[in-house]
Structure formats: C-alpha cells, structure tokens
Design a protein around this nucleic acid. Sequence first.
DNA 1: CCTAACATGTAAACTGTTACATGATTCC
DNA 2: GGAATCATGTAACAGTTTACATGTTAGG
Lengths: 178, 178
Amino acid sequence: MAALPTPAYVILGMLRLGARSGYDVKRLVDGSTRYFWTISQAQIYPLLKRLEDEGLVRGRAEPRGRRPRRAYELTRRGEQELVVWLRDQHDVGYELRDLGMLKLFFADVLEPAEVLEHVRAMRARAEQVLEHLDRDSQPYAAALRDAGRRHPLDTLRLGIALHQAALEFCTTLEAELA
Amino acid sequence: MAALPTPAYVILGMLRLGARSGYDVKRLVDGSTRYFWTISQAQIYPLLKRLEDEGLVRGRAEPRGRRPRRAYELTRRGEQELVVWLRDQHDVGYELRDLGMLKLFFADVLEPAEVLEHVRAMRARAEQVLEHLDRDSQPYAAALRDAGRRHPLDTLRLGIALHQAALEFCTTLEAELA
DNA sequence: CCTAACATGTAAACTGTTACATGATTCC
DNA sequence: GGAATCATGTAACAGTTTACATGTTAGG
C-alpha cells in the first residue's frame, strides 16, 4: 500500500478531533489549520473514498432527503496510521511562499516612499491574521483544550508568536525607513 | 497580454540583481529567497523564452563549445513590468505549509514523551535554518547592501526574526512539557 | 419567499516537481 | 582520468485549485 498523501492525514486527524462529514473537515481546516496548512474541498471527497477503501475510515450513508450524505469515523487502523505518521520525525519540513517578503527582497527598484507603503501593507496583513487567530481560532482551540486536547492551542500560540514577530519587525523597519 | 506567473517576476528580479543565465537565477534563488520563495529549474528556461518573446528580457547566444548557452539582461520594459508588479500592494498574501505545526496540532494522540521529541525536532529545524541563513544568505545579502541594495538584507532580517521566534517558542514549549 | 449555510461531487486547468538526457570546463 | 560544477533542456507526473452543478434545511 502506497504512503498516503499529506491531506489524507489531515482528514484522519480532523475526524479524530470530531469532524463527521467532508464538509466538517473543510470547516475545521478553515477555522484552525488554515494559516499553516490548507486543503481544498475538491481534494477531500475523493480522499475520503480512498480512505474508506483502505479501511482507515468507516462511512455510513445518512442522506438528507434525496441528497446523498455520508458520516465518517476513524477505524482503529485509521488511528494507528495517523499515529505512525505523527511519529515520523523525519519530515517536519515546511514550505513558505510569501509574496510580501519576495517583493521586499526586490524592493530596491522602488522609491523609498513606496517601500514604506509596502512594509505597512505587510504589517497590516500580520495584524489581520493576528486578529483572525484571536477571534476565530482561539475559541475553538480553547474548547479543545477543555476537552483534553492541549496541542491545538500550542500550535495556535506558535502561530501567534510568528505573526507577532513579523509585526514587530515591520514596525522596526518602518521606523528605519521613515 | 496575460499577467505573468509569479516565477516570471522572480526571474526579472534576479536578472536585475545581476543574474545572467538561467543557471544563475536558480543559484541566486537557492542562496537567498529559498526560505520564502522557491523555483524549480524546470520552470526557469521556458519562462526565460517567454519573457524574451514578450520583450521583457533580451538574450544573446554565448555558446560554450557545442553546448548552447544564453546570457540575458532586462529590457526597459522588463524593468517597468517588474516595478508595476512590485507596486501592486494588492497581493502581499502568503501560503505556509508546515508539517511540524500540522503534526503538533494533532499531537494529542501521542505520548507526552513523543510530543517532546517532536518539539525538539522542530527546534532543531529552526536552528538549522538560522545557521544556513547566517552562513549562506548573510554574506550575499551584505554584499548586495554594499552595492547599494539594502532590501535583500532587510528580508533576511525578517527571516531570521521569524525563525528566532519559532526557536524561542519551541524552547518554551519544551520546558512546559518536561 | 428568499437567502445563507449545509453538503456533495466532478471536470478541467493550472502549477510545480522529478527524473532524465546531454555536454563543457575546471580542479584534483 | 575522474569528479564536481557549470549549463540547458524536456517529458511525465503529482498535486492543487477553480469553476461548475446540484439539492436541502433553517431562519428571517
């Protein structure tokens, strides 16, 4: 059996955190891992089917009227598979694509005033993300912690620390450029 | 004329910073923007051709023996195109895919000792990146600053601040988990 | 009654990477 | 003479997103 693609583990993990439908998975991803891992809706349904074929999730039909609908849960093998993947310390890599940083890198072609504008835009973005993390992700992570899962909150704290650092750097740079 | 894909602007920017061949572009990207923007070699050559067709770069053949080789430089229109793109404050978005954070998010399935191991691995990664930035990117950015381009160094400082923040958070979390 | 949110699914397009092939030059 | 580095290029593949299509349920 071929190794699963990463989005499959996201699905397994979200099912373990209480998601029941593909739609739930998408909602939870958007509300929690979105800033360090996204997944598009079009990937979810085919993957759920595959996971069911491989016996890692169990789905049963719960149609609403004429509309098909499936509710899923992890099987024991699915949970084992998730644990094996989580344990693999081998891949903790990351990939960042940051247009703000890329444009700053090339910004010497611009007028100083334009660079300042750009840095301000980067700071505004960091502020927006922090606001979203605080308003939308925090309550969800706090609820999970109260249910005994502490690590979503730890991850959120890391996300906040990262964006805070970006925010502080932008503020410093703005002062230098002014 | 359709808007160019982002890697095309990376090429324009790198040509402006002194790259002459496709190979140069790849080398500069690997040595400088790699931690916030990568580009694969296979994308570069077709894009250079396209940029030449659109009059944004000028290439001339400088073969080595029987091996073809092209040296490129920015045209005025190419530089204008770069500036227009840089000015567009509309897209300063970013995309992060961080397996370390994703696994931390789901880490409640693991034993506490395993989580600690994982956080240590994340910290080790941050340390490695910081080392690379300091050893490989710093000299290059410093040389560019001495040549009058200060923003590659600013971008590097932001990268360092980000990884430093990650490192500090991991250290804190390790202490909490121990 | 209408809109928003719930919910599933597919086809096509796009983006990016991997793997391979080729050959020159420089340094040990 | 062999290895590493310089240098270009393509074909196949994998991964991801966009756009569309469809229908339900709950609330204002």
